[in-house]
């Protein structure tokens, strides 16, 4: 069970459909493993429904309904053909395949490897990065400029704020400086969405988070 959850304001932006795709992906991956946050999102979705009901209404014509009927009549897909198969595969698998270890990782420093997957999200301005910290490995201390949203995909890491396990969700900003360590016997892999480039404070110049904040 995860211990670190998105805050309510972020979940509300998600429920409203206002998050960018990479941010929504981080939330989705967390929700898939966190019944607690799912129920918070259920409540927020209901809030959306009630807000929609509270707003003014805009007239719709009967002819529009006729057009809808003719669409469903000419529908080749039968009602019961709509099944959930499409959703069987996790969005992570769709994006990255089954095996995270076989991705074309780029070694950065001793224990840290990275893979920039920003181009998988065309039209988004954020940087989307996978990072791997070798089991037992340490990342150098770092801080960030802007905000960084991270979800743990595999393994766990620890810093002065605590231990972050698989599917834990964490947001960091320029106030946070840390020195993460991969704990447990697995490599720790994270997915991070960066709203701005990482601030380079130390001797390490091209370093990225969350191992490098």
């Amino acid at each position: 069970m995860t211990r670190h959850h998105p805050d309510s304001l972020t979940l509300m932006e998600y429920s409203a459909g206002n998050l960018t795709e990479p941010h929504a992906l981080c939330i989705r991956l967390h929700l898939d493993q966190c019944p607690h946050c799912c129920s918070r999102v259920d409540t927020l979705d209901s809030l959306g429904a009630v807000m929609m009901e509270h707003q003014p209404k805009a007239d719709v014509s009967e002819s529009m309904f006729d057009r809808i009927l003719s669409r469903i009549d000419s529908d080749v897909e039968k009602n019961d053909v709509v099944r959930r198969d499409v959703h069987r595969m996790s969005p992570l698998q769709k994006l990255l395949g089954e095996d995270l270890d076989s991705l074309p990782w780029k070694r950065q420093l001793g224990d840290v490897s990275v893979l920039d997957i920003s181009e998988r999200f065309p039209g988004q301005s954020e940087q989307v990065v996978l990072q791997k910290l070798a089991a037992g490995g340490k990342a150098p201390a770092h801080t960030h400029r802007g905000e960084e949203t991270t979800i743990v995909l595999q393994g766990a890491f620890a810093d002065q704020k605590g231990v972050f396990n698989q599917w834990d969700f964490v947001v960091l900003n320029d106030q946070d400086e840390h020195k993460p360590v991969a704990v447990g016997c697995e490599d720790c892999i994270t997915l991070s969405v960066l709203s701005a480039p990482v601030k380079l404070t130390g001797t390490f110049t091209r370093m990225l988070n969350p191992f490098i904040r």
């Binding site: 998600y14 459909g17 992906l25 499409v86 959703h87 969005p91 769709k94």
Partner: peptide
């Protein structure tokens, strides 16, 4: 690559 409904789920899906 990722469909909208992979990211935003409909309750009951």
């Amino acid at each position: 690559q990722v469909e909208t409904e992979d990211l935003w789920q409909i309750p009951g899906d």
